[in-house]
Amino acid sequence: MSDSASSFPGRPLRRRSFLRVAGATVASSALLLAGCNDDDDVTPVTTSNTLVLTANTVGLLNYLYLLEQLQAAFFQKVVDAFPDDFTADDRAAFTDLRDHEVIHRETLKYTLDTNAYDVNLGTNALAFKFDSFNLSSRSGAYAAARTLKDLSVAAYNGISRMLLTDAAERVTFQAHLKLLVKMASVESRHAAFVREQLQSNSFAAPDVVDTNGLDGAKTPAEVAPLIAAYLPITLNVAALPFI
């Protein structure tokens, strides 16, 4: 466990990305959301203030990348200003949670490389909105964490089926699947922990685990409206290949 409260800088932009930034009109909100690059698989976005995810694995990975950015930003915000009634254990746990999410985010960013939707804008270019949460109290911070964590668990559980195994994706889907499930169970561990802090024996309560003993699973279309309040843009997941 790291007890460092310092924030992690993101991976520096690579030279190629930097040049693109230098030569582009970064201020354009349409470009911000385009995720445009030299990969033919990616369809540039044209709608202003909307992030349109593409109908392939790049789209799926960008969806997860966005979820991890959201979570990393959330835990960073709490770590930057711990609630007054946070105990030493709470601080240590939230620091761990922040670290894990930052590592998830940066791993996905590295994997996406120039296919990351925000490749031209560095880490956390989107300013996520957490004003619907009360982060000044322990219970508020944990309640917010519970909301985000249960959502993250269900999102991961709902996405592995969507990895395409057709010819175009055959080389990579196994590697991507392995990577996703390695992060998925850590999200579940987080969820169980934060739930328990709010209510004894809620780590796998009936509101998240059904009578078949199954955790939740949500499609991107189900997740998108649930995270809309935290995003400064509109997320369009309609093109993602649901199978």
Binding site: V181, R189, F203, L214, D215
Partner: peptide, 16 residues
């Protein structure tokens, strides 16, 4: 997906 939904519950158990 079902296997992963079980996997997820096992991880909750492990954490607890």
């Amino acid at each position: 997906q079902t296997a992963l939904q079980i996997h997820s519950v096992e991880a909750r158990h492990a954490a607890h």
